[in-house]
Amino acid sequence: MGHGGDVIAELTTDHQEVEDFFKEIEGLPSGDSRRKDCADKVTIELVRHSVAEEAYLYPAVREHLPDGDALADKELEDHAAAERIMKDLEGCDADDPKFDSLINKLMTEIREHIAEEEGILFPRMRAMCSAETLSELGDKVRTAKKTAPTRPHPSAPDKPPANKLLAPGVGLVDRLRDMMSGRGKD
Rank of each mutant, 00 (worst) to 15 (best):
P97V: 06
Y56L: 03
E136G: 00
L137V: 07
R142M: 10
I110H: 03
E136R: 10
I25R: 01
E54A: 03
C129A: 15
Y56M: 05
P168V: 06
P97E: 13
N163F: 09
T13F: 01
M179L: 06
H49D: 06
K105L: 12
L76E: 15
H49P: 04
G171Q: 12
P59H: 12
L71D: 03
D186C: 03
G68L: 04
R124C: 12
A72C: 10
G4I: 14
E83L: 01
M107G: 00
G5H: 04
S181I: 08
H113W: 08
G119M: 14
A144Y: 07
D37R: 05
R35W: 02
E109W: 05
P160H: 00
C38L: 10
E63Q: 15
L76G: 11
V42P: 03
M128L: 09
S50D: 06
K74F: 07
T150L: 03
P157S: 08
V7Q: 12
A39Q: 02
D158A: 08
V18Y: 00
L57V: 10
V141R: 06
V173I: 15
G91L: 00
Y58K: 15
T143W: 09
E26K: 13
E132G: 14
L11P: 04
L106Q: 02
L137D: 11
E63T: 12
K36F: 07
G171V: 10
D88R: 11
K159E: 11
I103C: 02
F21Q: 06
L106F: 09
R84H: 15
A82P: 05
A55F: 00
N104R: 09
K74A: 13
E54Y: 13
E83K: 09
G68V: 10
G68F: 14
I120H: 14
E45R: 13
A167R: 01
A131V: 06
V61F: 11
H64P: 03
I110R: 03
I85E: 03
M107Q: 08
A72M: 09
F22P: 08
L57Q: 12
L57W: 07
E77M: 04
H79F: 10
G4C: 14
H49S: 05
P160F: 04
P157D: 05
K185L: 07
T150S: 09
S101H: 11
P154W: 09
V141K: 07
L134H: 05
I110W: 11
L65R: 04
A162K: 08
A55G: 01
D78A: 09
M107L: 04
S181M: 14
A82D: 07
S30A: 15
R151H: 03
D20E: 11
M1C: 06
L65T: 07
H79E: 14
G5M: 08
Y56T: 00
